[in-house]
Simulated scan of single mutants.
Amino acid sequence: MRKNIFLMIVLLSFTHMFSQIGIQTPNPIGILHIDGQKDNPVTGTTFTPAQQSNDVIITNTGRVGAGTLSPAVKMDVRNSGNGAIGFGTSTLTAAAADEGAVRYNNGVEYSNGNEWLPLLTAQPATNKVIVIASKTNNNVKLITPAAVTTTTGLQNRQSNYLVSWTKAFESNSGTSFNATTGVFTAPHNGVYVASFTTDLSSLAINYTVDALNPIQIEAIWQLYDNTAGLTTANIVNTVKCVNTMSSNSIGNIDAGSNCTASFYMTAGQRLMPYIWFNLNNSDVANFSLNNTGGYNNLTIAEQ
């Protein structure tokens, strides 16, 4: 009986003795406490940031701290030093890894339980492209953007390609948008949101009613391939925004248009805006934009 009692006392003492394990420190403050540089104080619970930076701890709540002795979450590597987590590659399926898993496979990805999805963890090394420009003149290329002649004045029932912009701002290289030609060239693959607005000076909207040619103004984005041509054969995509209006105006009114569209562009592809309108009986190049109120603007932003 005495032997049994003695054995129980020894076992309890052993359990108590090793309830906290310290490696390279006689002063562990967690279930497991490793002092990498062996620079912790022998007693007490006050540790400098430098002393904590080389420590690893497992607390009695099952939290792990690397570089911190007060982990706030299950795995905490926040400290005043070089706190970072490295993820390796994995060939596990998203289902096998289960939702919440993270890996690095040519980029950081996370599992939602069904598929691996990219995780945006940082901004790109270069700024994304943003272009802001305004148009304060009536210069256009008629019929085709490759026309040799620049015409001063917009024409009814013609394609009016908007050239001669004034660039207000452009990020990145500053050379993606050619303000003279009105052509934006994608510097690299990506999604670009393009928007432009125009406002014609007051005019009488009174074109003869024609069911096949309704009274309207169209704002159009034309996407071209990555060659040098600006012909029909080079067109990749066209987005048209149409504004219709009453067949007759009591007095002169402004005819406005706008078009916003998203394009996936590969490097070298080009984007250009133009308008087409059918507003009255005159078919000569004598229409003007309203250049006095800042109504004619263009914005292109990479997403």
Rank of each mutant, 00 (worst) to 15 (best):
G22C: 07
F196Y: 11
F18D: 04
T25E: 06
V56R: 05
K74F: 03
T151S: 10
M272L: 15
S247E: 02
T208W: 12
N258G: 10
D39H: 07
T238M: 04
V131E: 03
F263R: 06
P28K: 09
L230H: 01
K128T: 13
A267S: 15
V73E: 08
G81D: 14
A285T: 08
I57L: 13
I220W: 00
A66L: 05
G30F: 07
N27C: 15
I250C: 00
F196A: 01
G268W: 07
V193Y: 03
P71D: 04
N206K: 11
I34A: 11
S257C: 08
N248I: 09
G251W: 00
A147V: 05
G86F: 10
T185M: 14
P214M: 09
G153F: 02
V56C: 05
K135Q: 12
G100N: 06
A146V: 05
A72I: 12
G67T: 05
M272Q: 13
K128A: 12
V242H: 00
V209W: 10
G174W: 10
A97Q: 08
A233K: 07
F87Y: 15
Q303F: 14
A204R: 03
K3R: 15
T121Q: 04
H188T: 08
Y161T: 03
M245L: 07
T45A: 12
L92P: 01
I23Q: 07
N234I: 06
T266S: 14
R103P: 03
S111H: 05
S173L: 11
V77H: 04
I23R: 10
I29H: 08
T175W: 04
T48E: 12
T91A: 09
T299C: 06
K3L: 15
D98W: 03
D35S: 09
G251F: 01
N243G: 04
S90A: 08
V10H: 06
S19E: 14
N226Y: 01
E170I: 06
N139P: 02
A146T: 11
G293L: 07
F263G: 06
D199E: 14
N79Q: 12
F184K: 00
A84D: 12
N178P: 03
T232E: 09
F177A: 02
T299Q: 14
A233G: 04
S171M: 11
Q51V: 09
N252F: 01
S202V: 07
I250G: 01
T180F: 09
T126S: 15
D283Q: 09
N213E: 09
L203Q: 12
A219H: 01
T231M: 04
T166Y: 06
S173N: 14
Q216A: 14
